[in-house]
Simulated assay, not measured.
Amino acid sequence: MTEPIRWGILGASNFASEHMGPAIHMADNAELAALATSSPAKAAPFRAMQPRLRVHDSYDALLADPEIDAVYVPLPNHLHVEWTRKALEAGKHVLTEKPIAMRADEIDALIALRDKTGLLATEAYMIVHHPQWQRAREIVQSGELGTLTHVEGVFTYNNAEDTANVRNDPAKGGGGIPDIGVYTYGSTRWVTGQEPQEITHADLTFENGVDVIARVAARFDGFTAHFVNSMRLHPFQEMLFMGDAGWLRLTAPFNPIVFGEAKLEVRSNQGERMERFPSDWHYKTQVENFGKAIRVGADYPWSLEDARGTQAMIDAVFEKGGRG
Rank of each mutant, 00 (worst) to 15 (best):
G322E: 13
L88F: 06
A121K: 02
G91C: 03
S38Q: 08
G193A: 07
S187C: 13
G291L: 11
L120V: 14
R103W: 06
Y283G: 08
A217I: 04
G209M: 12
H93V: 14
A30H: 03
V228T: 14
V166S: 05
G243T: 08
Y125Q: 10
F206R: 11
D280E: 15
I180K: 13
A217P: 01
V73L: 12
L264F: 08
S13V: 05
N208Y: 04
T251L: 09
K284G: 13
D221F: 07
E123D: 14
V228K: 02
P170W: 05
A33Q: 13
P74W: 02
L32A: 08
A44R: 07
A104G: 11
H80L: 04
H93L: 07
G176I: 12
A164I: 08
E82C: 02
D179L: 09
L250C: 11
P51M: 06
H201D: 14
E238P: 01
V212G: 05
Y185A: 13
A312K: 09
A262L: 06
E265I: 02
V55H: 01
G260A: 10
A36F: 01
A70V: 02
V71K: 06
E265C: 01
H25G: 01
G173F: 00
T122F: 00
A23K: 00
T149F: 02
T163V: 15
Q134W: 03
D203L: 11
E275R: 04
N269Q: 13
P76D: 10
V266D: 06
M126K: 04
V140H: 01
N29M: 11
G91M: 12
R189L: 14
L264E: 01
W281K: 00
F318K: 08
W133F: 14
F318R: 09
L110I: 15
E207R: 15
I68M: 03
M102F: 10
E31F: 08
A64K: 04
I177K: 04
M313H: 12
A33M: 02
V296G: 05
T149Y: 05
H201W: 12
G321F: 12
E319A: 12
D115S: 12
T200Y: 10
T205D: 12
P301G: 03
V71I: 15
A30V: 08
F318V: 05
